[in-house]
Design a protein around this nucleic acid. Structure first.
Lengths: 193, 193
DNA sequence: ATAATACTTGAATGGTCATTCAAATAAATG
DNA sequence: CATTTATTTGAATGACCATTCAAGTATTAT
């Protein structure tokens, strides 16, 4: 017996960064070898193939985003304030120059073909879970009286997810901070008022 | 001398459909040959290379969308009603099963790399023009008294573009008509109220 | 210590792709 | 009609890529 020598999380984060920066298809095995330090054989040994590495990277991305999400909502501020901070964070990601400006869910979903039902299903499921977490927070805001109780928290969550996707996509062509901030603000207001 | 035998617009629409369905990178020259009936040499003769074909397809896509846009705003209904109809049309595109459910601007933009500044610039410009056309319509709605005059028509246009991108992206993972219609409705209301 | 097991290495393989090219063909011009 | 000029054809080219594999190596368990 023998355990893998590499740090699985580090390798997955390197891979996920490449997938976000260059896209899955244009990230070659030589690219992955260079970025991760792993030889092709090791990648195949650990992840079956390039597609398996993508799935593992998506899972890691989901785990990382989950932790991040929880952190934004673990303060003792009002839930709506937490949402605003969360949105501001996303805007700052959009205008950053590193890989975080692209969301792996979106890029992988747009790149996936009809043939790759597996990636599509995994990402849809991950998005649905994120949306549910948002819906739960909205419900919490309603029970705390921060949000009028006649709203549909699941609809609000869908609208926010839609808006965040819109922000991210809009930022791809027009990454101006002030404009994105205004858009995020109106998005927030559309939900709260 | 001699003119090309093929119908340029037809070829470009075939190519644009493939690019939307499979993505630019995964659309191979054999694919293009089969879909357009053009041999590789003809494509190179007419469009320089595959990348040139993409640029030409994007230009054709823009022209087609321009015509479409004008048609939605050439009725004698109130501008806001025209917007609602336009939005409904986009929702119906999102839930359709053909290539129209993906927008070539978005798919090509997400697929383009940092290296391909040309595609990025062309698409950004095309989006900006579309956004400006929307802004003009909002201004028109304000002068006609359909929309309160204290709004910023350019901001409204950006918000609508963002929302449409959000809708399209959201639909990629959750293409349920009723849900998308509700989202489109709230998007519309966020702008008008 | 030794055997068994699993990871690592990196060159080799086979396939696919964008692009080129030279020959063939057709239209337009004078 | 003849010449010129452009397009069409489709096979050939060269590059790149995902994947495989066999030999080497380290770790664990007995």
């Amino acid at each position: 017996m023998r355990n893998a020598e590499f740090d699985r999380e580090k390798v997955l984060r390197k891979a996920m960064t490449l997938f976000m920066e260059k896209g899955y298809n244009k990230t070659s095995m030589p690219d992955l070898k260079q970025a991760t330090g792993l030889h092709p054989g090791s990648i195949y040994c650990a992840f079956e193939n390039k597609h398996g590495l993508l799935l593992a990277a998506i899972a890691q991305y989901k785990a990382d985003r989950n932790v991040e999400f929880s952190q934004f909502f673990s303060t003792d501020e009002p839930v709506l304030t937490q949402f605003k901070t969360y949105l501001d964070h996303i805007v700052s990601e959009c205008v950053s120059c590193d890989a975080a400006k692209g969301c792996l869910f979106i890029t992988a979903l747009y790149e996936s073909t009809q043939a790759d039902k597996e990636v599509q299903a995994v990402i849809s499921e991950n998005i649905a879970q994120w949306q549910q977490a948002i819906a739960d927070k909205f419900k919490q805001a309603m029970t705390k009286g921060e949000l009028s109780a006649d709203k549909d928290h699941e609809h609000l969550a869908r609208f926010l997810v839609m808006g965040i996707y819109g922000l991210r996509t809009f930022a791809q062509s027009h990454p101006q901070p002030e404009i994105l901030e205004k858009l995020a603000e109106q998005l927030f207001n559309s939900i709260c008022h």
